[in-house]
């Protein structure tokens, strides 16, 4: 199965919506690549700069509750994908965003608030790795920590298949 993880960037706020992830003004693009420069352009978060080098190098996002709420736009997932981010770890996700992640063969991991607190406490130099056999997330920052997570078996199938289109084409 695909490997997930790498340098992680923390967005320490709840209810980050799809308009903040990729504003509607870019929805007229007909290619996924064209979205890439506009990642999190309208994010409302103190001290956040969408041009931050660390964000550009990130392979994973760590965030709080209800991530990806708002519109159904899969652009909000592709804009991460096209920035080489295919792992988002959050306290919870909005349904459509979560489904879009797995539909694209990407990984959305839910952890309780205490675990997210612990990851954030590891500091800004954070690296994540995922063991999809054991359902464990390993975090390396100021020290090492690991966290068990639950994954819906069907979502695991989608990650394995490389997304819903491939799965559905094989099954239905």
């Amino acid at each position: 199965m695909k490997k997930f993880g790498g340098p992680a960037f923390v967005l320490d706020r709840s209810d980050i919506n799809t308009d903040e992830i990729i504003p509607a003004r870019y929805l007229t693009e007909n290619s996924k690549e064209a979205l890439a420069p506009h990642l999190l352009e309208d994010l409302n978060l103190d001290g956040f700069d969408p041009r931050d080098e660390k964000l550009r190098q990130a392979r994973a996002i760590v965030t709080r509750g209800n991530f990806g709420c708002g519109s159904s736009r899969e652009h909000a997932v592709w804009v991460f994908e096209k920035n080489n981010i295919d792992l988002v770890v959050a306290e919870s996700f909005a349904r459509i965003f979560r489904q879009n992640m797995f539909n694209c063969g990407m990984l959305a991991v839910e952890l309780p608030k205490e675990d997210i607190d612990a990851i954030v406490a590891l500091g800004p130099d954070l690296t994540l790795a995922v063991d999809l056999e054991k359902n464990v997330l390993m975090a390396q920052g100021s020290h090492k920590a690991s966290f068990a997570f639950a994954l819906n078996p069907f979502d695991r199938e989608l990650v394995r298949a490389g997304g819903w289109l491939a799965f559905a084409d094989a099954h239905y």
Binding site: N100, L165, A168
Partner: peptide, 9 residues
């Protein structure tokens, strides 16, 4: 409401 991949399928 669904995303593009769900729509495609």
């Amino acid at each position: 409401g669904v995303g593009t991949t769900d729509l495609e399928v």
